[in-house]
């Protein structure tokens, strides 16, 4: 770990000001990813700005429009186990509980979950090149070991995936990320928060220098009845998703009303495809319909040597997840049998 200075920020404005002043500074909350990366020398901050004592960023409360606002410092556990989240947004709760471990969820913050970085082996290993870690050095995952890498939206510069489970639900729920910076506050629709790698894979998100995530706002539509989070991985717990699907449906009788679904483990960001969702709207819930939507999502998918299986796996996972959601039988995160 490199040497750095430490600042315990007193308020959001101070934290944002200090973060803006020094591009090498990093904001820290739960620390479960940042400290991890610092020990690998992947992150070498000049300064850590500790925001854990900022007032008002931990609250989980109803918003004016009937949605729910989750403070950026609320821990993953606090969110997943919050009575209102469990009651109204069970998809979010389930998705959080599918990720990491109780220990990590107790420490990890909501804002930090959004900002966690890829698990790409090469990104994590400073002994190898990586465009995300050191722009311009190349991407050895292409042509290398790419079992866990992206099949959608990748570029010739980077095929990393975003590792979060929670963010897959937030994409499906169409959350809004509230941020605060030198230019004031703004809300970023979830779909616009994370980026695709393109030719600048070093940038994971569209946050501006110095901007701090203050809250995540959930709209009132919550898919309280018809939802699921289906996570497929290399062991039954404590593993990142190879492919995951968060799905929410508002059933209109036996027809599909509003439907949202997003994929994890397949792209540089939680992957949503509004066109595919539109294909389902107003149709009966059927395996054929789900398969057509899945086909649409994966139409541009590109596989590499070790991850090509993800394309077919994602196709099947979408069909299964949509079926679970339509039937109102969400995937249990403790009973590993998949309905």
């Amino acid at each position: 770990m490199n040497r750095f200075s430490y600042l315990r920020a007193g308020d959001v404005a101070e934290a944002a000001r200090e973060a803006a002043a020094d591009p090498a500074a990093r904001v820290i909350a739960g620390g479960t990813n940042l400290i991890d990366l610092m020990k690998y020398d992947v992150e070498r901050p000049s300064r850590l700005i500790d925001i854990t004592r900022l007032p008002g960023l931990r609250a989980i409360e109803e918003t004016a429009d009937g949605g729910l606002s989750i403070g950026a410092l609320a821990s993953n556990t606090e969110v997943a186990r919050h009575p209102e989240v469990e009651r109204r947004y069970p998809l979010l709760s389930s998705t959080i509980l599918a990720g990491a471990t109780p220990q990590l969820r107790n420490a990890a913050s909501t804002g930090g979950n959004l900002l966690q970085r890829t698990r790409c082996y090469y990104f994590y290993d400073p002994g190898t090149p990586c465009n995300k870690r050191e722009p311009g050095t190349g991407c050895p995952a292409i042509g290398g070991v790419n079992r866990i890498h992206a099949v959608l939206g990748a570029s010739e510069h980077c095929i990393a995936t975003h590792p979060s489970d929670m963010c897959v639900a937030l994409a499906a729920l169409e959350a809004v990320v509230r941020v605060s910076g030198a230019d004031g506050e703004r809300g970023i629709p979830f779909a616009d928060f994370h980026r695709l790698p393109g030719d600048a894979p070093e940038r994971d998100t569209n946050l501006r220098q110095g901007e701090i995530v203050t809250a995540v706002e959930l709209p009132p539509n919550s898919f309280g009845q018809h939802h699921t989070y289906l996570k497929l991985r290399d062991r039954h717990s404590y593993a990142f998703a190879l492919v995951s699907v968060a799905a929410g449906i508002e059933m209109d009788g036996d027809r599909i009303g509003r439907v949202r679904f997003a994929l994890g483990g397949v792209a540089h960001k939680p992957w949503r495809d509004p066109e595919a969702e539109a294909l389902l709207q107003g149709r009966p819930a059927s395996a054929e319909g789900f398969a057509a939507a899945a086909e649409h999502v994966l139409r541009g998918a590109i596989g590499h040597k070790h991850n090509a299986f993800k394309i077919e796996l994602a196709r099947r996972a979408i069909v299964r997840a949509l079926g679970q959601a339509a039937a109102g039988t969400p995937q249990s995160q403790t009973d590993k049998r998949i309905q």
Binding site: Y6, I28, G31, T32, I35, D50, Q103, L104, A107
Partner: peptide, 11 residues
């Protein structure tokens, strides 16, 4: 319960 390895004491 937390992982003590991912906590900075100063915080």
């Amino acid at each position: 319960r937390i992982n003590a390895c991912l906590v900075l004491a100063v915080m």
